[in-house]
C-alpha cells in the first residue's frame, strides 16, 4: 500500500519578495548559462588573441567585409578570411550615458563604426582614450587587443591614432 493521505510538502523558510499586494506583485528570479558556439565565426575570435583582426572576402565577387561572414551578402558565394589593417577611421560614433543592465557600470562609453581602406563594410567597436568632443568623423584610430582574453568581440577596441 503506497497511498498516504498524510503526505505533506516540506516547509521552507525562503519566502518570496513581495513588491505590492494589490495587485499582488512578486519577485521572480531567472538566470541561465548558455553553451554559445561561435561556429563558423570562431576564427575571428581566436585571431584576436594573435592581435589580428579578421574580416572576410568573397571568393567570387571580391566584396570585402570588415565584420566577417562566411557567405557573401551580395552574391551568396562562400567567402575566405581576410586580414584587416589595424588602422582605420571613425565612420560614425556616439557616447552612451545609459545602456542595458549588463553594461550600465561601464557608462559613459563610446561606440564607433570603423572604416578601413580597401574594405567595403564597417566594424563596430568601442573607442577609448577620447571624449565625445574630441571624436570626429574621419578621425584616425587604431586597434588594440586585450592581453587577458574574454573570448568575445570586446577583446579588440580602438584608440586615437595620434603621436603621444
Amino acid at each position: 500500500m503506497t497511498l498516504d493521505p498524510d503526505a505533506k510538502l516540506p516547509e521552507t523558510e525562503e519566502g518570496t519578495v513581495v513588491y505590492n499586494t494589490d495587485p499582488l506583485i512578486i519577485r521572480s528570479h531567472y538566470e541561465i548559462d548558455y553553451i554559445h558556439s561561435y561556429a563558423q565565426d570562431s576564427e575571428f575570435f581566436r585571431a584576436l588573441g594573435k592581435k589580428k583582426l579578421m574580416g572576410s572576402k568573397c571568393k567570387k565577387c571580391g566584396y570585402v567585409y570588415a565584420t566577417p561572414r562566411s557567405h557573401c551578402m551580395m552574391c551568396g558565394s562562400e567567402t575566405e578570411w581576410y586580414e584587416l589593417p589595424l588602422k582605420g577611421r571613425v565612420h560614425t560614433f556616439t557616447t552612451c550615458y545609459f545602456s542595458g543592465e549588463e553594461f550600465l557600470n561601464e557608462t559613459p562609453f563610446n561606440l564607433v563604426l570603423v572604416e578601413f581602406d580597401g574594405v567595403n563594410s564597417l566594424f563596430m567597436s568601442r573607442l577609448i582614450g577620447a571624449d565625445t568632443k574630441d571624436i570626429y568623423i574621419g578621425m584616425p584610430v587604431r586597434a588594440k587587443f586585450r592581453r587577458n582574453l574574454k573570448m568575445n568581440v570586446t577583446d579588440v577596441y580602438f584608440v586615437p591614432d595620434v603621436e603621444k
Binding site: C96, S99, E106, L111, V153
Partner: peptide, 27 residues
C-alpha cells in the same frame, strides 16, 4: 534595454555595449 539589445547580433554587436539608442545615435 538589454532584452531589446538581444535583437542585435550577439556575436559582434551586443557585447560591445548592446543598446539600441546607441546604434540609432550613430546613425
Amino acid at each position: 534595454n538589454e532584452f531589446i539589445a538581444l535583437a542585435s547580433d550577439t556575436n559582434f554587436d551586443y557585447p560591445i555595449g548592446g543598446f539600441y539608442t546607441g546604434y540609432y545615435a550613430m546613425m
